[in-house]
Design a binder for these strands. Sequence first.
DNA 1: AAACCGGGGTG
DNA 2: CACCCAGGTTT
Length: 356
Amino acid sequence: MTINIDKKQFQQDLISWFLAEKRDLPWRRTADPYQIWISEIMLQQTRVDTVIPYYKRFVEKFPTLQALAEADEQILLKEWEGLGYYSRARNLQAGVKEVAENYGGIVPDNRKEFSALKGVGPYTAGAVLSIAYGIPEHAVDGNVMRVLSRILLIEEDIAKPKTRKIFEEAVTEIISHDDPSSFNQGLMELGALICTPTSPKCLLCPVREHCSAFDEGKQQDLPVKTKAKKNKAMQYAMIAVKEGDCVLMEQRPSTGLLANMWQFPMVELAKEALPLEIEEELSENFSGVVDGVEKITSFKHVFSHLTWNVDGYIAKGENLILPAHMKWVTAAELELLPIAGPVQKMKTALQLRGDV
DNA sequence: AAACCGGGGTG
DNA sequence: CACCCAGGTTT
């Protein structure tokens, strides 16, 4: 990788712009490595505007590393509810527990130790080390790859895992050692505000004079990125089984999609099913009596890699023998269980009917 | 290297 | 509606 920019001038132009134009974000008001760590985990695959309210609630609820280390997982997941990628929350807590136990509660200040923690990959390690500790480590995310692909005219496919190394080497070469934090944040802020995926605002760009893509009119063609395969559709019945004031809930397995989250019992269907068939299917699962099955709603939930087509039913249960991952809850208890998007849609439909 | 893991925004 | 965005872990 040959880098033909004036490094010192580039650093100064980028950092000056960042210091003048940076957004006032909650995690930019703390120097606490623990809180900066939380922000970087939340910001993975998630937009700034979405993260802000979650971050504020989260640091209020778990203000110290020790508080998070000791938190109950269900409380933790409830705080994360709606943010998605729930394994981030569980991995963060695992990492925090390691720091509490093995590092006396002090977040490690070197890449080797920090990136060995659960949920901390190359990007997060570099981001926290540079922002919290001022260490000149690369922090290459999608924004940085887009920005640098244009400035340095790098035409490798950024969807390929090995391409990230090219960008890490480039950042290592050009990062400011006087202010690594503003340099890394400046690259990402530039990607968010100016050097956007479509229609980059080159006329407002503080480093336009350093940009090879702009020079050659290729900014719209970069970065090169092959696109992902399309997703797969699944058909489910989701059933709110009621007995008295209680409704039946089940916890998902501890691995895989929506791990450890709660839901109304679900059954996968080969195709759309009739209420009577749902009744038979359920009775087999519960070794008890389920009847009065009635369809109340129908909705779709799209994940990145698959789509759930869900038919929502209510039913009455009687003397059911429950497997270990199921329990009866009252309306108040239901509010405390962490649930993901599709289950929230079902819950809302039930609440509109006055069923829960 | 490829597959798995959510949710929200834009055009 | 179709399409875009994106870091870490597991296989």
